[in-house]
Amino acid sequence: MKRIRVALTLVLLGLPAAGCGAAARDTGFTPADPPAATATSDAPGAPGASSAPAAPPSSPAATSAARPGRKPPTGTREIEVERDLDESPIVTGARFAEHDGFDRVVIDVKGALPGYTVRWVPKLVQEGSGDPIDATGGAYLEVRMRPAAAHGGSGKPTWTGGPIFQAGLGNVQNVVKTGDFEGVVGVGIVLDHRAGFRVTEQRSPNRLVIDVAH
Rank of each mutant, 00 (worst) to 15 (best):
Arg5His: 15
Ala7Val: 15
Leu8Phe: 05
Thr9Ala: 13
Leu13Ser: 12
Leu15Phe: 02
Ala18Trp: 04
Ala18Arg: 03
Gly19Val: 04
Gly21His: 02
Asp26Leu: 11
Thr27Lys: 12
Phe29His: 10
Phe29Gly: 09
Pro31Ile: 11
Pro31Leu: 12
Ala39Thr: 11
Ala39Cys: 08
Ser41Lys: 04
Pro44His: 08
Pro47Phe: 08
Gly48His: 09
Ala49Trp: 11
Ala52Glu: 08
Pro56Gln: 08
Pro57Gly: 05
Pro60Tyr: 00
Ala61Tyr: 12
Ala61Pro: 04
Ala61Phe: 15
Ser64Thr: 13
Arg67Phe: 00
Arg67Lys: 12
Pro72Leu: 04
Pro73Gly: 04
Val81Pro: 07
Leu85Ala: 07
Pro89Gly: 05
Val91Ser: 00
Val91Leu: 11
Ala94Glu: 00
His99Asn: 10
Asp100Phe: 02
Phe102Glu: 01
Asp103Arg: 01
Ala112Gly: 03
Ala112Pro: 01
Pro114Asn: 03
Val118Leu: 15
Arg119Ile: 04
Pro122Asn: 08
Pro122Arg: 00
Pro122Leu: 04
Pro122Cys: 07
Ser129His: 08
Pro132Gly: 00
Ile133Ala: 00
Ala139Gln: 03
Met145Phe: 04
Arg146Tyr: 07
Gly152Met: 03
Gly153Tyr: 09
Ser154Thr: 15
Gly162Trp: 03
Pro163Thr: 01
Gly168Pro: 05
Gly168Tyr: 09
Asn171Gln: 10
Lys177Met: 10
Asp180Tyr: 00
Asp180Val: 09
Val184Trp: 04
Gly186Lys: 06
Ile189Ser: 03
Val190Thr: 13
Val190Lys: 02
Leu191Gln: 04
Leu191Ser: 02
Phe197Val: 09
Val199Ala: 09
Ile210Ala: 06
Asp211Cys: 07
